[in-house]
């Protein structure tokens, strides 16, 4: 996994709430057997008319040229619904490294962390402050200090992440590396468990 630390970037605001995984990546795109290439189907049904890549829907934020960047900012309860990790893959593959929201669904948060996509939970007030920004304003997310800052105004909040996950992201490790390192403990456990 790629290391992650400081992200300084413009952002894409998705003001909707309760964005579910069926919207992030519709079920018909789950037939792939690899992890790559999901970005082009991210928010597919909101992005295009009649599923036609030649017909982007006006008004949907990914289609608006003034918005870009590595940070997706979304309304509360982002990522609810199914456990499909394809949702995290699609967001990552599209080019985002951070998702900011005032509330995340549990499984989505885990899936994101397991793929080097950083979910940052902010207060509702902070979220609204971001939504009020101009398209060319930037945000800085610093994993080491666990802070998120609106560069133009200096408004800053700290965010939580568990110590273990933080170390993993900073170093580009994943859980499997760790689990493999404790296999003897697991075998020991199995013996006394049976």
């Amino acid at each position: 996994m790629e290391k992650l630390n400081r992200i300084h970037s413009r952002f894409v605001p998705l003001t909707l709430e309760n964005v579910d995984t069926d919207q992030i990546i519709p079920a018909r795109f789950l037939k792939a057997t690899t992890r790559d290439g999901f970005g082009k189907n991210l928010f597919r049904d909101w992005r295009y008319d009649n599923d036609d890549e030649q017909k982007p829907k006006a008004g949907f934020v990914l289609n608006e040229a003034q918005y870009s960047g590595e940070i997706l900012v979304a309304g509360k309860n982002f990522g609810c619904g199914s456990s499909r990790e394809h949702a995290a893959w699609a967001i990552k593959d599209y080019g985002f490294k951070v998702v900011v929201s005032s509330f995340f669904a549990d499984i989505f948060k885990n899936n994101a962390l397991n793929n080097g996509l950083l979910p940052v939970t902010v207060s509702e007030a902070f979220l609204q402050a971001v939504f009020a920004l101009n398209a060319n304003d930037t945000i800085t997310v610093d994993l080491e200090t666990q802070t998120i800052t609106i560069d133009a105004t200096g408004l800053q909040e700290s965010f939580e992440i568990n110590k273990y996950k933080k170390t993993c992201l900073l170093n580009g490790y994943d859980d499997i590396d760790y689990l493999l390192s404790i296999r003897t403990d697991i075998e020991q456990f199995e013996k006394q468990y049976a």
Partner: peptide, 22 residues
């Protein structure tokens, strides 16, 4: 409980998962 594909991989590899207690 439901898990993502990376976690499916973890269980394949170790029959274990890293979980925070809810």
């Amino acid at each position: 409980f439901g898990i993502g594909t990376s976690e499916v991989e973890m269980v394949f590899a170790s029959q274990c998962l890293l979980q925070s207690k809810p």
